[in-house]
Design a protein around this nucleic acid. Structure first.
Lengths: 210, 210
DNA sequence: CAACATTACTAACCACTGGTTATTATATAA
DNA sequence: TTATATAATAACCAGTGGTTAGTAATGTTG
């Protein structure tokens, strides 16, 4: 058996992950260096490269559990029968926004500064799988809000919905204030924006039916 | 007279600016280091610090003329009497998008990753002055599109409009393809989004009048 | 048990970064 | 000519991401 090897490896990997998490939360993803993480984890910085391709890969692995949790929470909402689609959409969006603001590091996973380089949106990457699942869940809920003509139109409307989300997130993610303060500040405008968008979507659909 | 001193200083500053511009265009703002710029400008990297606080200050100074040009172009549109407000708004937005995609470096000036740290939106900074002027021009045009109740509401609607713009820009700015390709790809969805938003805005206003 | 192989880890190094300070040129003024 | 203000730089600092060659620790096999 190669038991002690495996165990040891697992342990150091975990140590690195928790060290990284601690620093990311404290200083923000960009402000933390690989060597700092190594120091915190009490290992050589080269060891980190043994387990993770780079800092971003570390963040991705670190984010998986939180993302799964987010997915489950959203799933719970979509599966509720007693709510209207619009109420669901709002609730989901709030959850999503809160998540991104709380995990400001992970926000980059969605806006994917690097990973959207078209040529390298590796769909096999675990992180992208869950991203896609999350997106389609929101898209689906949006579809339930409006009687939509075609998949094409739903896609277009979803994009617009996401642009609005992204815009808000990119605006507020760089304001260094407690999440709760930010949420309080952005919620009224965001809720209004959802109303505007849904109302607009419906209007377009209606005008096309004539 | 301190002529030759002044002249020499002006010259090296200009050399640095053009060197920086060349590299920014070629490799993108983030990928260029101060030392690279120095090498390109055939001076010591310390010289650059004599003229610019940091790389961002350099970008700002570099951007001023382009921004002024953008402002003038937009101004020309708003001052045209023969067009409807909606047509103006669309045209302005297209100009704005094209500008941000062409000058991907400057896009960060608007989404202002750093400068939006609330505590340091220095309104005396030349770059922020023109930013504000640009924003209020768009806001004003938006106001002409819809009969709006209060300044408050106009502000809220403008924010929503900008979120949409930002969302699109942050999504497409990181795709490394020729500007024209990107614009072709995003224009249909963007135009649709403007229609959706305006239609939504109007609906809200209408429903409030009842 | 001895010899080997695999795995986990690290020290030393590389070329680079942003930024500061003490020093040297260069042009102007006394 | 000497003094002075300005422009520019070399040398340095502490840090970065990343690689390579070599060392411990654990497993396997003869």
């Amino acid at each position: 058996m190669t038991n002690k090897h495996l165990q040891r490896a697992e342990e150091t990997k975990q140590t690195i992950l928790t060290a990284a998490e601690k620093l990311f939360v404290k200083k923000g993803f960009d402000a933390v260096s690989i060597r700092e993480i190594a120091k915190e984890a009490k290992c050589s910085h080269t060891t980190i490269y043994l387990y993770f391709k780079d800092k971003e890969a570390l963040l991705h692995e670190l984010s998986m559990p939180s993302l799964e949790k987010l997915y489950d929470s959203i799933r719970k909402i979509t599966d509720t029968a007693s709510k209207t689609a619009e109420a669901k959409l709002k609730e989901i969006s709030h959850l999503f926004i809160r998540f991104c603001l709380t995990n400001k590091n992970m926000y980059t996973i969605f806006i994917n500064e690097k990973s959207s380089r078209v040529d390298e949106v590796d769909p096999n990457l675990e992180i992208n799988k869950i991203r896609i699942r999350l997106f389609s869940l929101i898209q689906q809920t949006l579809g339930e809000c409006i009687k939509i003509k075609s998949d094409e139109q739903l896609l277009a409307f979803s994009r617009i919905y996401f642009y609005n989300l992204y815009g808000i997130l990119s605006t507020y993610s760089y304001q260094h204030e407690p999440t709760e303060v930010l949420i309080e500040r952005l919620t009224p405008t965001f809720d209004l924006s959802v109303e505007v968008l849904l109302s607009g979507f419906k209007q377009i659909v209606r005008s096309e039916q004539k």
